[in-house]
């Protein structure tokens, strides 16, 4: 499998197939991140698409992890208000683009988790998205983010603890049955 660096190099010289591979590798991560920001499946999808398209226009061959650049684009677009709407995911209509299987979690729980993930530090949120949204191993995360591999597992453990603390707190407040 081509490394991120190889794909970025090729994509930067105009190779759309290489860029397609990058998108395929990171689409869930980018979408998950966009969803954190918009908290809306449709808006998140639009934001992620726009960021990935712009990502091709701006891709540069550099030592920096590409995914970091891309998440910055997502942030920038989100800040610019380029997303069309941001509403509660509970209210979101049917996902025309086929956003995966029907929710395995209740809308209220999905909303709660989205909000708590959103309230995590950006680094933590990114880490969890890469790990469980993108299915990357700690080593792959280390490669993608430029972090030392040794620290990734510790950071993941810390993220889970923070998330759990927040969910427990929320369960106490709102009576949600999170089972955590």
């Amino acid at each position: 499998m081509a490394s991120d660096r190889d794909l970025v190099q090729r994509a930067a010289s105009g190779d759309r197939l290489a860029y397609r591979d990058l998108v395929q590798r990171y689409q869930t991560v980018v979408f998950g991140y966009a969803f954190f920001l918009t908290r809306d499946l449709d808006a998140g999808r639009r934001l992620a698409r726009e960021a990935l398209v712009r990502g091709f226009a701006e891709i540069q061959d550099s030592d920096r992890p590409w995914i970091e650049d891309l998440l910055q684009i997502v942030n920038a677009l989100h800040r610019q208000g380029r997303r069309l709407k941001s509403s509660s995911i509970v209210d979101a209509g049917p996902d025309e683009g086929g956003s995966g299987p029907a929710p395995a979690l209740s809308p209220a729980l999905l909303q709660a988790i989205a909000e708590e993930l959103h309230s995590l530090e950006v680094e933590e949120r990114t880490l969890l998205t890469l790990r469980h949204g993108g299915g990357l191993s700690p080593e792959e995360i280390a490669e993608a983010t430029g972090e030392p591999a040794s620290g990734v597992s510790s950071q993941i453990a810390r993220c889970f603890k923070h998330l759990r603390d927040r969910l427990v707190e929320r369960a106490r407040e709102g009576g949600l049955s999170l089972g955590v």
Partner: peptide, 23 residues
């Protein structure tokens, strides 16, 4: 919970092609 959350929050099958159209 996080696992199930990410199982739910996925861009969907057509997303990749949709991006590549824009590209």
């Amino acid at each position: 919970v996080v696992h199930r959350y990410f199982e739910t929050v996925r861009p969907g099958e057509g997303f990749l092609e949709d991006v590549m159209v824009g590209v």
